[in-house]
Simulated scan of single mutants.
Amino acid sequence: MKRTGIAAALGSLAAAGLCAPALLPTAHATPQALGTAQARPAAASSCDEPTSTAARVRTGSKVKERNELTLTQVAAMERNFQQRLRRVQASRPVAAKGKLTVRVHVRVIHSGRKGRLSKAVIGKQFAVLNKSFRSAGVGFALADTKYVNNKAWFGDPMTHERSMKTKLHVGKARDLTLYTADLGDDLLGWATFPDEYRRAPKMDGVVVHYGSLPGGPIAKFNRGATATHEIGHWLGLFHTFQDGCAGKGDRVGDTPKEREASSGCPTGRDTCLAPGADPIHNFMNYSDDKCLTHFTKGQATRMKQQWAAYRA
């Protein structure tokens, strides 16, 4: 989920065994989003689809994400995670160190020439991912790239998400299917959480705006950080501003609490009484791409643990 000024935490009720309206992708939005831009309608409610998804939205976007994570929902997800992690740890050690390599299947949805990303741009995105996740011990290997010329899917991937993913998703829990399309003027990207895979494996994956890849047309959000952010969700991370100043936050001990998502690059911002300035440079915040620089050691550990619990 991402970006500036919009707390776009989408909720997952899967861990609690409940159903909610079908997923609204984790949205990532750009600073040029128009106040008059309308969010696309949510899909019908279904117990067969993920209901959690993390999203990034553009600065100034008026889109409202439909499944914001409540304290109760996050608590249910955490209980499920901790239970699964304990079962895994009882049978084998879960290493916080060592490198984890994710196989990525890229699906470039385009409409004629529009959105038809070059292999060079895709290569630059992978360079960004491997640099961004290096300190966390996570790497990404391109398994294959498939180009899909489909005007409807390209122009409205949210409405057509089920048909698109059902046809194009490949691999198992440890494989990432990364889709690019035109997400409109508000959303930059969305992702599913690891705990959703068993219930809806075909819906697993990450969707990003084609214009958010390196060199794309979305000013301030065209350095590839949207994919980094959304894959962080796919690996089990919450937003750094989860729960605001109250609650247990993002369940990572070394990310200071903050009241709301950051916008731009507000150096020195400190919105909570808890120790530490707001983590505006963290990839799981909503700052501009150039402002985002790192994951913490705690986030790296959580990603490895989530992988062991749900994707290994």
Score class of each variant (00 low, 15 high):
Met1Thr: 11
Ala8Pro: 00
Ala16Cys: 04
Pro21Phe: 10
Pro25Ile: 15
Gln32Tyr: 06
Ala33His: 03
Gln38Cys: 05
Ala42Gln: 09
Ala43Tyr: 02
Ala44Tyr: 04
Ala44Arg: 09
Cys47Tyr: 04
Glu49His: 09
Thr51Cys: 06
Ser52Gly: 14
Arg66Phe: 14
Thr70Arg: 02
Thr72Leu: 12
Glu78Arg: 13
Arg79Trp: 01
Phe81Trp: 08
Gln82Ser: 11
Gln83Ile: 09
Arg84Cys: 03
Leu100Asn: 08
Leu100Val: 15
Arg103Ser: 15
Val104Glu: 03
His105Lys: 14
Ile109Gln: 03
His110Glu: 04
Arg113Trp: 05
Arg113Ala: 15
Lys114Thr: 15
Lys114Val: 15
Leu117Glu: 08
Leu117Tyr: 09
Ala120Gly: 04
Ile122Gln: 01
Lys124Asp: 04
Gln125Leu: 12
Ser132Phe: 01
Phe133Ala: 04
Arg134Thr: 04
Ser135Leu: 04
Ala136Gln: 03
Gly137Val: 09
Ala141Ile: 11
Asp144Trp: 07
Lys146His: 14
Asn149Gly: 11
Trp153Lys: 07
Trp153Leu: 10
Thr159Trp: 03
Arg162Pro: 00
Met164Asn: 02
Arg174Thr: 12
Leu178Gly: 06
Leu178Gln: 03
Tyr179Ile: 07
Leu188Asp: 06
Gly189Phe: 08
Trp190Ala: 14
Thr192Leu: 07
Glu196Ile: 10
Arg199Leu: 12
Pro201Tyr: 09
Val208Asn: 01
Val208Ala: 06
Ser212Ile: 02
Ser212Cys: 07
Leu213Asp: 00
Leu213Thr: 02
Gly216Asp: 00
Lys220Arg: 08
Thr228Ile: 15
His229Ile: 06
His229Leu: 05
Gly236His: 05
Phe238Asp: 08
Phe238Gly: 04
Ala246Met: 06
Gly247Val: 10
Lys248Ser: 13
Arg251Asn: 05
Asp254Leu: 05
Asp254Val: 10
Thr255Asp: 00
Ser262Cys: 14
Ser263His: 12
Gly264Ala: 13
Pro266Gln: 07
Pro266Glu: 07
Thr267Lys: 13
Arg269Trp: 01
Asp270Arg: 13
Leu273Tyr: 00
Pro275Val: 10
Pro275Arg: 05
His281Gly: 10
His281Ile: 06
Phe283Ala: 08
Ser287Met: 10
Cys291His: 04
Thr293Cys: 05
His294Pro: 00
His294Ile: 08
Thr296Ser: 12
Lys297Ala: 15
Gln299His: 05
Ala300Gln: 03
Trp307Lys: 02
Tyr310Val: 06
Ala312Arg: 10
